[in-house]
Simulated scan of single mutants.
Amino acid sequence: MKKIALFGNPVYHSKSPIINKIFSNNTNIIYSYTKVNIPKKNFFTVSKNFFYSGGYGANITLPFKKKALHLCDLLTKRAILSKSVNVITRFKNKYLLGDNTDGIGFINDLKRLFCCYTKKKILIIGAGGAARGIIPQLLLYHNKITITNRTIEKAKNISKEFKNLGKIKYIKDINLCKKKFDIIINATSCSINNKIPKLSDNIINSKTFCYDMMYSKNKTSFLKWCSKKSMNIYDGLGMLVSQAAYSFFLWHNKMPSIDLSIKILKKCI
């Protein structure tokens, strides 16, 4: 039986084990999937021990997606472009192959939600691994991205890293921005702690598509804030299932039904 794990900190809230159980039931592929909360200083030690002891694959979540690059022997083009890894698998039973399915999972969810994602003005809040995973895909569709972050130096650095892929800039104080955006994406973990980024509602209107990469049974704190001005609010549950499905394909060479899995997951939580 293949041993697969989720590495992150925190992981207590993660629905990944439930999603993978749904995938297993729907495809008749049996494997073990556990979540491992790793102390932030011990990522390499714990993850290496997992693979040395027979682990076959892993999902990587906050805050280790960038560190996971250096754990891998080989990287896919998506991982190289995003400079982060959210899934690892054994390749030829010898190497660790790192991929990033966040971007393709995100675009797949926008399609599911009938969101037009080409040539749009997009604001991304947050400059960590979650943002890195989706930026290359969004730039591929000729969008204009503005990125902001609590630590502005991170937003500045990430805009420099990806400027060769398309139009991306950072803004020091989003509250001074006078233009409104077509799409606003929360790529921070604020919603886990029931907080919201410090934002002014002058950047949002009734047509703005608001997306929180976090998810919750009820509206996240970010989406509650967005709902004051827009009805187009969505959490990251669909993206979570989509990126997990592409991870599953990497491990087992079979694609589970994303739409069916989302329906089942909503009933479970």
Rank of each mutant, 00 (worst) to 15 (best):
K65P: 03
G54V: 03
L96D: 02
L96E: 00
L74K: 15
N42L: 11
D73C: 12
N20D: 08
I38C: 05
V46R: 08
H13E: 03
S14T: 07
K65R: 12
I19A: 00
A58L: 10
P63H: 12
D99M: 05
L74F: 14
V87T: 04
L62E: 14
T61R: 01
I22F: 11
N42W: 04
T27D: 15
P10R: 12
S84A: 10
T34M: 13
N9A: 12
K40Q: 14
N49K: 10
D102H: 02
K21W: 10
L96P: 00
I107A: 05
I22P: 00
L97S: 03
I29R: 03
K94L: 10
I80W: 06
V36T: 08
T61H: 04
K21L: 14
L75S: 05
F50W: 07
V85P: 00
Y56P: 02
F50I: 03
T27P: 13
F44L: 07
N100G: 02
L69I: 15
I60G: 03
K15V: 07
T89C: 07
N49A: 13
I60L: 10
I88W: 01
I22S: 06
I29W: 02
N59C: 08
Y95V: 07
H70N: 15
G55L: 05
T34Y: 14
I19P: 00
G98V: 03
L81F: 08
I22E: 04
V11T: 09
T45M: 07
G103P: 01
P39K: 10
K94T: 15
I104H: 04
N93F: 01
F64P: 01
F50Q: 04
G55E: 05
K94P: 04
Y95S: 06
R90N: 07
T76L: 02
P10D: 14
I19K: 00
T27A: 15
F7R: 05
I29F: 09
F91H: 08
P17Q: 14
F64I: 11
N42I: 03
G54N: 03
L71A: 09
K94N: 14
K48G: 06
K15L: 10
F51C: 11
L75M: 09
I18K: 10
K40F: 08
T27W: 13
F91D: 06
I18Y: 07
N93C: 04
S47M: 10
S47A: 15
T89M: 06
S53A: 13
S32E: 07
N26D: 15
N42K: 13
G54A: 04
P10I: 08
S32W: 05
N20M: 06
Y95R: 07
K41L: 10
V36M: 10
K48A: 10
L97A: 02
A58Y: 05
S14E: 11
T89K: 05
G8L: 12
N86L: 00
K41N: 13
T27H: 15
N59Q: 09
I18C: 11
F64T: 03
F64Y: 14
K94F: 08
I19S: 00
N26P: 13
G55R: 03
G105H: 00
